[in-house]
């Protein structure tokens, strides 16, 4: 092989370009870098002076322009883009699980639907956090975000309403347990699905 152009400016230029092309698939990145390298070898004599190196690099254009072209037509890379963080949806699920447990306990111990809803208000602050975290969960679809954000209040109000209806229709009876448990299982299933999606 014949000598390659070595000049601090050329080396710095190629290093910058390589860093900027970080998000490009390795084969393509190598091809772009080799093309630019070849271009430099072809247009600079070994031992070229600073002025001619600067002129050739100026004609190549800023490394950013080359990188922009390489990224053209695909999503711009960002450090967080490749691995969207999971802690928001996972934490939201954990808070929701606590909330559902609270609803279950208050359903068993409370004296009536209003007491269930009143004790559910104790969880208002954690729920606000779960709501915000759900909305920030980038690994979830918009529908999943909404489901996670509204799971707790929907279960709580549903439970209160169900109790009120059952008490009015049937009165206090063991039979009331069946729809209550069904509603709770439904909420739990939604939560399990959300958790699975969050951990995927």
């Amino acid at each position: 092989m014949s000598p390659r152009t070595t000049h601090p400016l050329v080396d710095a230029y190629l290093r910058d370009l390589e860093l900027l092309l970080h998000g490009i698939e390795p084969g393509e990145r190598a091809e772009v870098l080799a093309g630019v390298r070849e271009h430099l070898d072809g247009s600079l004599a070994p031992g070229a002076d600073d002025a001619s190196v600067r002129a050739v690099l100026a004609e190549l254009g800023p490394p950013q322009a080359i990188a922009d072209e390489a990224y053209a037509g695909r999503p711009a890379p960002s450090p967080t883009h490749d691995t969207p963080s999971r802690w928001q949806p996972v934490t939201a699920c954990a808070i929701n699980a606590l909330g559902l447990l609270l609803v279950a306990f208050s359903t068993v111990w409370a004296m009536g639907p209003w007491e269930v809803i009143a004790s559910g208000l104790l969880f208002a602050l954690p729920w606000c956090a779960a709501f915000a975290l759900s909305m920030l969960a980038r690994t979830w679809t918009p529908r999943q975000r909404l489901a996670s954000a509204l799971l707790y209040p929907a279960t709580l109000l549903g439970m209160g309403a169900l109790m009120a209806v059952m008490l009015a229709l049937v009165g206090p009876a063991f039979f009331n347990l069946i729809p209550t448990v069904a509603l709770f299982v439904l909420a739990a299933v939604v939560l399990v699905r959300l958790t699975k999606a969050a951990l995927r």
């Binding site: 393509e28 091809e31 254009g61």
Partner: peptide, 12 residues
């Protein structure tokens, strides 16, 4: 405008 942009294009 800049010669360097040719190389990503050729790769593509």
């Amino acid at each position: 405008s800049s010669e360097g942009t040719l190389y990503p294009l050729l790769a593509r």
